[in-house]
Design a binder for these strands. Structure first.
Lengths: 342, 342
DNA sequence: TGCTATTGTGTGATCGATTACACACTCTGT
DNA sequence: ACAGAGTGTGTAATCGATCACACAATAGCA
């Protein structure tokens, strides 16, 4: 009978008994809905303090049919971008009183089992009755999921190629590609290599498209490497080791990490960025300011991306209809790796 | 009455109605506990498929008094180490059928409101009825939390100064400090600077202790900088900009990022690592292999740390008593930043 | 003096699952 | 033919909250 004996956590019934009121009254006091007398308040509060009572959210969630929780799908292990997005989501959600339940997906882009895996992970989030889902990593093959989810619960993707006019927040990768390339052109470069990001990803192709448009407009021949395997510095290094045909004086790398690896490979060939050639990239991770040389890059505000995603979920929850897409603008950060050609 | 009308998700009652059995039978089929006839199984399964039924974990959790969920507290925004730990946790937990609910704490180490903040976050996890909690970032002042939690639910800290023989998993920072310093001594260095990590953190002081012990044994004077503000490259850069008294031929930096920033500052003074002086650090983040020069460092397996933490929680859950501490050994990774003195 | 509003409290249905229990039926083996 | 084991299924209590509803008591006001 006495739940104290079982050393389980005290329930509202225990508080009610101690304060000599009914559970209904305790609930009204705790939720702030309905009338509760001053003396009852008093007694309930001290009972709560004495027992160290904490409301059981599982029970509350069952009754209220809402969990104040949102689910996040990202690819793991987390790289700089994904973990920043997660931090932004956590920040915004915690302040709004929401919790985050996360699931990381293996990111073998080519693994045929991947779609099933993502489906399973999403299913688990749904089973947990999350109030909304954020797909934090753009993922080829998530499209099927999209339609099913869109009509079920608030859903936001960070893909920059949303299939509808709603439910996405992303940085303008095309603009970022343009920004980077334009900077090199402005510096006077006429032979610009693009070290391309992973294939199948809209982010990569948008960046490339930005590059191509600028380069075409300037009457320069486009030179694009084979796609990197992933966004890592090791991928950039591998590309740098490959024979590169044609001459070039500047390289636009798909992101900072790739640029780092690419520069490493170039050093092995005796070429120093910021002296023998120029490099520009995209991301502006914290370390980029201390690369050798400090990396000129296009900053993407991943934290804001996460916050924005949460805000959209919240708006959907409050208004009942999906929030309009939010596009985040990239910004050029001039440092020392991009200089005029020799 | 008909919950289909409300377009809410189908419940077990809907499945039972469609399959023409009672909810008890549906439950038995789904949980695999108890007898269910072959034809009933058949009908239930097709009802499940037809309705797209998913069990409501909130209801299940309330009834079973277990959520198959663990809470993770880390400091945000996530740096390389923390996000790797999180990935390790996610990996291990997802495979075991557990979910992760995360909360990131602001890491102003000196902010007096910090302990209250961590308390609130932990309280929220408790309210969510998580089955266990992992404190993924060592945090000065979490000690008070410790005692309360230890006796409440399975709790694992990643602190390398556990207060007990149980409930902690961590890398041996002292050994890492020794490993790094020994390598420099072995290379022939006799004047070694230690760029110290953030104060108040056991990890920092353990690394320093490892350094001091090795240096003392070799009859070398210890030279230690003021502590960095945090683990970032910018901190390392700031230290590097400070006037450094005394001569030294090699620097042991508290982690990779700090080393990167420190080298940046040294370049500004015309000094190149791997040529004019040596650098060694701790972490082995993926980019370190592509620093200029590739960084010699002591690898810490953060992913394994996360997995280990989850395993300990699981063991506690299964056996009913806390798992013994797990220590992870660091490993030297030789690259090009540490060379014999000129 | 009544009559309505406001305030305060208890009761019981409910959310969607799990599971103990009761009951029925089918086989065995004696 | 009957006891007992093994199957298969329905009923109802339960987990811990929220909240609609009923009902008192008090206050204000004609």
């Amino acid at each position: 009978m006495n739940s104290q004996q079982k050393r389980s956590r005290p329930s509202m019934a225990d508080v009610a008994a101690l304060a000599n009121v009914s559970v209904g009254t305790v609930s009204r006091h705790l939720t702030g809905r309905g009338y509760v007398g001053a003396d009852a308040r008093q007694r309930i509060q001290s009972a709560v303090d004495e027992l160290g009572y904490r409301p059981n959210l599982v029970a509350r969630n069952l009754r209220t049919q809402t969990t104040n929780t949102i689910g996040v799908l990202s690819m793991g292990p987390l790289d700089f971008g994904s973990s920043s997005v997660l931090s932004g989501l956590d920040d915004a959600s915690r302040q709004a009183g929401y919790g985050l339940i996360t699931a990381q997906l293996p990111h073998d882009l080519d693994d045929p089992r991947a779609p099933a895996e993502i489906e399973r992970a999403a299913g688990r989030l749904l089973a947990h009755q999350v109030d909304g889902i954020v797909l934090a990593s753009p993922y080829p093959g998530f499209e099927d999921l999209w339609d099913e989810l869109l009509n079920t619960i608030p859903f936001v993707t960070l893909s920059n190629h949303p299939r509808q006019e709603v439910g996405a927040t992303y940085v303008d990768s095309y603009a970022a590609g343009r920004l980077a390339t334009e900077h090199l052109v402005d510096l006077g470069h006429r032979a610009i290599l693009h070290v391309r990001g992973p294939r199948n990803l809209h982010e990569s192709s948008d960046r490339e498209r930005g590059y191509r448009d600028v380069v075409d407009a300037a009457g320069i021949d486009a030179q694009v490497t084979v796609p990197c395997e992933d966004w890592s510095s090791t991928s950039g290094y591998r590309i740098g080791r490959l024979p590169i045909e044609g001459r070039w004086t500047a390289a636009f790398c798909a992101n900072d990490a790739i640029a780092l690896g690419f520069q490493h490979a170039m050093y092995e060939r005796g070429l120093s960025a910021g002296r023998d050639y120029s490099v520009i990239a995209i991301d502006d991770m914290p370390d980029a300011a201390h690369f050798h040389p400090p990396l000129t890059t296009v900053a993407l505000d991943h934290l804001e991306l996460g916050r924005s995603a949460f805000r959209m979920i919240l708006e959907h929850l409050r208004t009942g209809s999906p929030a309009a897409n939010t596009v985040i603008e990239p910004a050029l950060v001039r440092r020392e790796s991009a200089v005029p050609p020799a």
